[in-house]
C-alpha cells in the first residue's frame, strides 16, 4: 500500500512506535503555549536536522509540507492584516514545526507498527461489544478495496465515454456509489462465509461450544 513511510532502515526506524508517538505528544504539549519567534526558528532548525540525519532522501521528505504551503501563506497574510506580522510568523512557524515533527514519526514508522502501538487505545471497545480485531479487519478491508474501487470507477468512466460522455463527470458518482455498495454486499457475504468479523473460534466459545484446532496437515 502507498504510504508516506520511508522504506529504508535508519536510526529513527529502530525506535519503537510507542516512544515516537509519546515524544510527539510531549512536544505538542510543550510547544503549543510558546510564542517566541527565536524559539521556533531554533525548533525549525532542529526539525530539519532530524530529517537531514536520515540522509538525502530523508531530507527530501520535508516536501510533504508542500500541499500546505499555500494555506500557511494565507494564514500569514491574514495575521499581517489583522494582528501583526510578528504573530503571523510565530503561528506559521509553530505549525510548520509541528507538522514536520508529526510527519517525521509517520515516515519512520511502518503502518503495522503504528497500528500495534495504538491498539491498546481500542481495548475499551470490548465493553461495547467490538474488539480491536474488528478495527484491524476494517483497516485491512479499506486498504484492500481502494484499488478495487478505483477499477470500478475506471470501468464506469470507460463505458460512460464509450457512449459519448465526458471524462470524469459528476454524473458517475451515483453509479459509482451504487456499484460500490453492491460490491460491499458480496464482500459481506464472503466474510460471513468464512466465520464473520468475530471468527469461528470466538463465536463458538461465546456459545459455550468447544473448538478443536487441528494443526496443518503438512506433507499431504
Amino acid at each position: 500500500m502507498i504510504s508516506v513511510y520511508l522504506d529504508r532502515p535508519t536510526w529513527a526506524h529502530r525506535r519503537s512506535a510507542g516512544m515516537k508517538l509519546g515524544l510527539l505528544a510531549l512536544c505538542s504539549v510543550l510547544l503549543l503555549p510558546q510564542d517566541s519567534l527565536i524559539l521556533f526558528i531554533g525548533c525549525l532548525a532542529g526539525a530539519l536536522t532530524l530529517y537531514a540525519s536520515l540522509g538525502r532522501d530523508g531530507l527530501s521528505q520535508v516536501l510533504l509540507l508542500k500541499p500546505m504551503i499555500v494555506f500557511f501563506g494565507i494564514i500569514l497574510v491574514f495575521h499581517g492584516l489583522f494582528t501583526g506580522w510578528q504573530e503571523g510568523f510565530v503561528v506559521v512557524l509553530r505549525l510548520i514545526v509541528m507538522v514536520l515533527l508529526a510527519n517525521f514519526v509517520s515516515i519512520t514508522t511502518r503502518m503495522d507498527d503504528m497500528m500495534d502501538a495504538v491498539m491498546p487505545l481500542f481495548v475499551p471497545l470490548k465493553w461495547l461489544g467490538g474488539s480491536p480485531r474488528t478495527i484491524a479487519l476494517a483497516v485491512a478491508l479499506v486498504l484492500r478495496f481502494v484499488p478495487v474501487l478505483m477499477t470500478v470507477y475506471g470501468g464506469l468512466s470507460e463505458s460512460y465515454r464509450a457512449r459519448g460522455g465526458k471524462q470524469g463527470s459528476w454524473r458517475l458518482i451515483a453509479p459509482f456509489a451504487l456499484q460500490s455498495l453492491r460490491l460491499s454486499e458480496n464482500v459481506a457475504e464472503a466474510l460471513s462465509a468464512r466465520g464473520g468479523a468475530r471468527g469461528v473460534f470466538e463465536q463458538n466459545r461465546s456459545a459455550g461450544r468447544n473448538v478443536r484446532l487441528t494443526g496443518l496437515q503438512v506433507g499431504k
Partner: peptide
Amino acid sequence: ADLPRFVGFVFQNPDHQAIF
C-alpha cells in the same frame, strides 16, 4: 457459527471474496 470450519464457500468473483 461452526459451519465455516466444515463447509467452505468459494464465490464466483475472487475480487468479492478476498478481504486482505
